[in-house]
Design a protein around this nucleic acid. Sequence first.
DNA 1: GTCGCCTATGTTTACGTAAACATAGCGCCG
DNA 2: CGGCGCTATGTTTACGTAAACATAGGCGAC
Lengths: 356, 356
Amino acid sequence: MDPDRQPPSLRGGSGVPGGRRKQRVSMADVAKLAGVSSQTVSRVSNGHPSVTGTTREQVLAAMRQLGYRPNSAARALRYGQFNTIGVILFNLDSTGNSRTVEAIATHAAAEGYAITLIPIDVPTQDNVLGAFTRLDELAVDAVIAIMEIHLLDAGTVKLPPDTHIVVVVDSDAGDRYSVVDTDQAEGTRLAVRHLLDLGHHTVWHVTGPETSFAGQRRAHAWRLTLEEAGRPVPPPLHGDWSAESGYAAGLRLADEPSCTAVFASNDQMALGLLRAFHERGRPVPAEISVVGFDDLADAACFIPPLTTVHQDFAEVGRRCVQGVLRQIRGEAASRPGTDLVPTRLVIRQSTAPPPS
Amino acid sequence: MDPDRQPPSLRGGSGVPGGRRKQRVSMADVAKLAGVSSQTVSRVSNGHPSVTGTTREQVLAAMRQLGYRPNSAARALRYGQFNTIGVILFNLDSTGNSRTVEAIATHAAAEGYAITLIPIDVPTQDNVLGAFTRLDELAVDAVIAIMEIHLLDAGTVKLPPDTHIVVVVDSDAGDRYSVVDTDQAEGTRLAVRHLLDLGHHTVWHVTGPETSFAGQRRAHAWRLTLEEAGRPVPPPLHGDWSAESGYAAGLRLADEPSCTAVFASNDQMALGLLRAFHERGRPVPAEISVVGFDDLADAACFIPPLTTVHQDFAEVGRRCVQGVLRQIRGEAASRPGTDLVPTRLVIRQSTAPPPS
DNA sequence: GTCGCCTATGTTTACGTAAACATAGCGCCG
DNA sequence: CGGCGCTATGTTTACGTAAACATAGGCGAC
């Protein structure tokens, strides 16, 4: 056929001159071997009914012999869709994000969709916009964005109106997008009520970073729950999700004699609190109770095991995929709206009634 | 054109009924508006030099006006490559994996490659084989596999010989594949030597699961280091990476009076150890020293802050991408081999000399 | 028995891009 | 001042797939 082809340098690598690789077995090849037209091969490949048993056998045999695999680029071109969902996010570090992404990938795979990851290293609006622009050229049918809305906002404004199907996590953009999220308010209520019910007069709070919508909502719900109960609202301490920041907050709270209960906006910061209280000789839960948020796998092995709000990240991921597929398939009930995943309180050993 | 086609399901942006087809602006559209041939549009789009300034301006203006975006499926079909790297793995939960994936995604993006995630829910050989088969139809130029080799093995054997460029993490298949990995042996040596140098007579070990190659290598290096130093090798305790399993091991070790130093195969299990020792009144590090592996972000806030071996997951991800790109580009030095990323010991407060 | 319909298969075409080839203008040099 | 060569652009074609359209037999109904 073409004996003077390139050495073994694979796959027509970028700009290798002269090296056109055939390499991939196409329907035409299979058709030739099976002695049918390529259209018949296509029909077999897609399970079309009007192919005789014997013909189908021949074609299948030829496919096996040649190791035929459909070319997804050609299919995508033909069909105008890619069977791929883009996931755009800032980092995979946060337990929540990675678990959510994993669930998304798993459920998408079950529906025949692949996941393309678009990470944004530095969360500036420019970068987000850039990511969306790149997405536009990317082989993606829809996008799931895991990020705060104020960043998403700037990014989408300039997008061609109907370019993308978008589902958002961690945002309040329910009026414009489909939003899926953990029910932050409910989870926070559970945590704060639990502490109040134990007899604590009020509950202190270590917040997440200001840029986090989830963090804001938890802080808001914390305040609201206290106010509803007619309790004083202590000044919140500001954290950044990291255990380190929780530790810093804990050192300050340890010196606050009136503080007997703290709600941390995530488990990592709660871990920092535990360390600070431990170092300052303020036993948990005897003197101070601590509640977290997330229910990390490790939370059960903190010292003491942490009472926390369990988030069902897998379910969040599942619903994201569901929402995206609904829209791709043009089903109704895909209008903007917010889909809240319930939480539950996991009571371990970091909470107890206040010292008498 | 064809009003009785399928309902509105296809592609139509947000499933707006009755409306969206065509949708995508093609080069032909831009060409018509700009009054040039589509080939000229292509040339502008690809930055080809032989286009006059004025023509280029007109084309660019038309592109902007129509919101043109190149169609990646068509490009992929034309070029025979996708600018996409597949990442196949079992779970994103483990900190290491998610950080590695993130680094892979970031570096790949910098090189103009997207990442497609192929998760395998249950790690059976069948599933792995299935994933590779699916990969074959997927729009992917190469694969990075993050998994134990014994699973990969069965999966690859049946693959058409040169279908894929593969780089493997967490495996010893350096003779057949390009392997990138943390230098488990070195890290383990650092940990064990540190404890011996503090004066401990020997070091106990809590292993990872038997299916983990990284776990095996750490266990092996632990044994070797002790033997080299002429120390007795206590029976290893078997864990499964989880804090829970570390806790269980810790309860047993707490009753072992001769045990003054433990090397846990990861930080989570070390956390479990800390909890067990705390509950059994065996103060760390006064009575028992503990060293972990990974250097989780939280490890600095354990009680006490954990001495551990730092893994540079970002670097692992970077080298994976590098290795893949080298092969895609057909550069030399891309033969099978093992590329080890160095570790370093981070000394915090969970280690001290043994009680005298 | 003949007509018409239905089924299995083949042929044409389009999807969007870009390489390869073709052409037309222009300037430079002899 | 005429031809050569270069440059800017247009035209053709191919990538692999699958819908749409075309055709050729076979079988049942009258």
